[in-house]
Design a protein around this nucleic acid. Structure first.
Length: 565
RNA sequence: GCCCCCGUAGCUCAAUGGAUAGAGCAGCGGCCUUCUAAGCCGCCGGUUGUGGGUUCGAGUCCCGCCGGGGGCGCCA
């Protein structure tokens, strides 16, 4: 909020300097307003003069002094002094009252503090998870869900109209689906005592057997009788439905709700796939060779052309995915976001090529690739047995460490960095566990407010407190952090970097714990107590809002561990 | 071989082309008659893999090399 104000002043100063003919006219370049690393450089600083120096072909410090002369008069209300330092930084030293203004602003904004309107009127579609209905959601899908959902919450906070969509890979003719159905059918027959071998590339997971059991309970012992292809279709339908329901339940329990579940098969049923292929043919980017239909993706930088329809007449996954994306583009979003696992990154070039081939702008689609997740207990890796087809499921980990801890851990690292989750650490109740560290800060604040209430000390209104009393270094440090929140939300959203939220929340918690140790809130000094109660309330709002963006709860109470035992 | 991601403190990772590269963990040393010690403070720790280049300024951008991971299917 202060950043924005200073940004505004700088833009005014530049315009004024240009008006006066002291700087050549050109549009305002991208520049930064930041909290300097060291306090000796003031409370805020901007690099505008250095950025301008390039365009104006002038010495940065000279440009800085021109800008300084043209700062608007309003500056005096907030700023103690302005200095030009280093290579051309303009440093602002704020008057003591600014800190109180920040607290006031946060309290007035409440749960809206951190929001922005920059995305107002723009529609975003974020497609994520999009798992095959051939098994339970895995640990990796959980990372996808956590990143995607948090990104959706972030963009929503920035004013975008966001839709969450899950693409169900339920194509009836897909090789995976058929393998899966055949695996279930085989297990079912084995249950009935038949000596049948599992097929090549079968799904070996324990859950396949469970589905077979379920089918036997629901549909009896004669479900596999009849014309073979019809039987397979029947099993496919049951198994798919079951898996889909389980995935939906897992996601709901994980705190993720989709606006739309989009079926791949529906694209075949409606003729959308055929239309998309037709469009590619018309544009001249689909051709027949070796009995198959190919996408000329090399025309758009892909390494090789890709098969759309196999020689056996069955379309590939790419064919329906092209139709799906055509549908998305026709729905007219301003921005499309896809979240894919690292194992799909090779697919990006052909997807974008297909979009370009159909005449749409591939840059409107942002594909985020996230890296693998590894699980540990302490330093011991938790191995998954690939041979047995058992992957670690989202459900298992969610049940073991809880939704809050898991979501927070998923967001701890940048999406393009591999992630290690330590199950022991995630459950540890200490400052080493980042999620507890943050939640504990919130609970501590609530505890202070409870004690205040018990002592008959009310939370004052803004008019009843003198916020200018908040001058202790720990108070100022905390308030600076709180003031950064809107900027953090904007950055995390626009850079598709939800992990920034965890870093930020940890910084606020650290600043609060530091304040807590040095500054007593409830004291004999009534005036100071009132001001600090408001500061603490503002901190609570920021922590709560930050956690809410991550889908993590902000508990009001975390009981102290019983140390007598 | 080609493509993508990564390489920063002993370990796990931050860092929007800006000032003296920051946290946590591990290690060492301190702090509870007071609102939750589930906390705080201090010390130790770096040639940002490497060689060039662009720039007033590079962990960040470009090129080469080395190392790790992933991908390279008429699977999804």
């Amino acid at each position: 909020m202060i950043r924005q104000t200073i940004r505004g002043w700088m833009e005014q100063a530049l315009a004024a300097a240009q008006q006066a003919g002291e700087l050549p006219p050109f549009p305002t370049p991208a520049f930064e307003v930041e909290i300097p690393r060291s306090e000796q450089f003031g409370d805020y600083a901007t690099n505008l003069a250095m950025v301008l120096a390039k365009h104006a072909r002038r010495n940065p410090r000279e440009v800085a002094s021109i800008l300084q002369r043209h700062l608007p008069e309003e500056t005096d209300r907030w700023v103690e002094r302005v200095e030009i330092a280093g290579a051309g930084f303009i440093n602002f030293y704020l008057k003591p009252g600014w800190a109180g203004e920040v607290v006031r602003h946060i309290l007035q904004q409440g749960e809206h503090y951190g929001e922005d309107t920059l995305g107002t009127g723009k529609r975003v579609l974020i497609e994520f998870v999009s798992a095959n209905p051939t098994g339970p959601l895995t640990l990796g899908h959980g990372r996808n869900a956590a990143i995607g959902d948090t990104l959706a919450r972030l963009l929503n906070a920035l004013g975008y109209q966001v839709e969450r969509e899950f693409y169900i890979n339920d194509g009836e003719n897909s090789t995976q689906i058929r393998n899966f159905a055949l695996s279930v059918l085989t297990r079912y027959r084995q249950l009935l005592g038949e000596h049948v071998e599992m097929p090549e590339d079968a799904y070996h997971g324990e859950y396949v057997m469970e589905i077979a059991h379920w089918i036997r309970e629901q549909h009896g012992d004669h479900a596999a009788q009849g014309e073979p292809e019809a039987v397979l279709k029947r099993f496919e339908h049951w198994a798919k439905q079951l898996m889909l329901q389980e995935q939906e339940r897992d996601l709901r329990d994980f705190g993720v709700q989709f606006d739309r579940w989009f079926s791949e098969q529906s694209l075949y049923n409606s003729g959308a796939v055929e239309r998309a292929l037709q469009r590619l043919r018309e544009q001249g980017f689909a051709y027949e060779a070796e009995g198959a239909l190919w996408l000329r993706s090399t025309a758009f930088g892909d390494e090789k052309d890709r098969v759309l329809v196999r020689a056996n007449g069955l379309p590939t996954y790419l064919a329906s995915d092209v139709a799906y994306h055509l549908d998305k583009y026709e729905r007219g979003y301003d921005l499309l976001i896809n979240l894919w696992g690292a194992d799909h990154h090779g697919y990006v070039a052909r997807m974008k090529a297909a979009i370009a081939a159909m005449g749409y702008d591939p840059d409107r689609l942002v594909i985020l690739i996230y890296q693998l997740v590894n699980l540990y207990r302490g330093t011991e890796p938790v191995r998954m047995s690939k041979r047995a087809g058992e992957l670690i499921t989202l459900r298992e980990v969610m049940d073991e460490i809880g939704v809050d801890a898991l979501r927070f851990f998923y967001l701890l690292r940048s999406h393009d960095s591999p992630l290690d989750i330590d199950l022991d650490l995630a459950q540890e109740q200490s400052e080493k566990n980042p999620v507890f560290y943050v939640q504990y800060a919130h609970a501590r604040i609530c505890s202070i407010e409870r004690v205040a209430s018990e002592q008959g000390v009310p939370i004052p209104t803004l008019d009843e407190a003198n916020l200018n009393l908040l001058t202790h270094p720990e108070e100022v440090a905390l308030i600076k952090r709180l003031a950064e929140f809107p900027e953090e939300v904007r950055f995390a959203g626009l850079q598709y970097a939800p992990h920034r939220l965890t870093s930020y929340a940890l910084e606020v918690a650290r600043a609060f714990h530091g304040f807590y140790t040095e500054c007593r809130v409830l004291s004999d000094d009534t005036e100071l107590t009132r001001a600090r109660l408001l500061l603490v309330r503002a901190t609570r709002i920021v922590i709560r809002n930050a956690l809410a963006l991550m889908g993590v709860s902000a508990p009001e109470r975390m009981e102290p561990r019983d140390t007598s035992a």
